[in-house]
Design a protein around this nucleic acid. Structure first.
Lengths: 151, 151
DNA sequence: TAAAAACCCATGCCATCCCATATGAACCCG
DNA sequence: CGGGTTCATATGGGATGGCATGGGTTTTTA
């Protein structure tokens, strides 16, 4: 089990804590858990992206190609590192979502964890439903193009 | 945890003191803390660059690539070393920002620490918000080039 | 001697840790 | 096959310690 799959909806308590779904925790540990998960606002969705060491290495990889002390590197670093928060997991498998992240994703009393393979996203359940509906529509369109094939 | 990651906004008190975020202090110590941090005006932004021993070594590395006694080396040395200040950290994890540095970054009563991996920057919160928005746009462009990466 | 810097201490908030409970699923046993 | 039990997970709340922040005091420097 080494990929984030499926979706789970958990409660956010009065302290802003939320349990990470146990299957996701298992993936994080297998991934080389180093004290916390990396979490940042998704660039093109009202949601949060999150992951473990594998995700961190991917971010490093993006910057590795750019020369030190260039304008470009600094700008990219700001977005890639500056927006990232390291959220530590407590003994009960919970994280605390800071206000900045909660407001970006519009999170209130519950949130939905969505597995995306190498990383997962955290959505407000309502917004995720909308998005899922849209995604289904897109699949239908594609099916018409591809012909009456898959179910 | 060996990189500067995430952003923190702290207050500058009446004496010009400001707490370095605890996670950054941890990185500095792991980096081989030698009595103070290196801090200088960013070359291309209204902010301050800062870091520990790793940052100092990187600057040395940049200069090492240039021939001794060349005009280019002299110019770069002045640019990189000339405005560097060593700021000592007091027992409570605070530094004092000298007037010259504060004015370059336009700092008043609060400042934002921005982790950039090997170093971090110190911004006025307002200016940083603008920069962050621009940086996100840039990442969106780049992501198309890199493919689905650190999204 | 005045100003500034370094040092020490006090405080309040927030994050973390620890423990308790409920719910549901898996398992075992009859 | 059915009932009971045990365990893992999710969730809630209290207690503790770290951290940011403010203020006072001593030491250094111009």
């Amino acid at each position: 089990m080494d990929r984030f799959v499926s979706t789970f909806t958990n409660k956010i308590d009065a302290k802003g804590r939320v349990s990470i779904p146990a299957p996701f925790r298992a993936v994080l540990e297998a991934d080389g858990y180093a004290g916390g998960i990396y979490c940042y606002p998704s660039l093109d969705a009202p949601a949060l992206d999150a992951g473990g060491e594998r995700l961190a290495k991917k971010i490093d990889g993006l910057l590795a190609g750019l020369p030190d002390y260039s304008d470009e590197r600094d700008e990219l670093s700001v977005a890639l590192y500056g927006d990232v928060q390291i959220l530590s997991i407590d003994g009960d498998g919970r994280i605390v979502l800071p206000e900045a992240l909660r407001s970006h994703a519009g999170l209130q009393s519950t949130c939905t964890f969505v597995g995306l393979g190498d990383k997962f996203q955290i959505w407000s359940p309502e917004r995720f439903d909308e998005r899922r509906a849209r995604a289904r529509d897109k699949v239908r369109e594609h099916r018409k193009l591809f012909g009456q094939g898959g179910g």
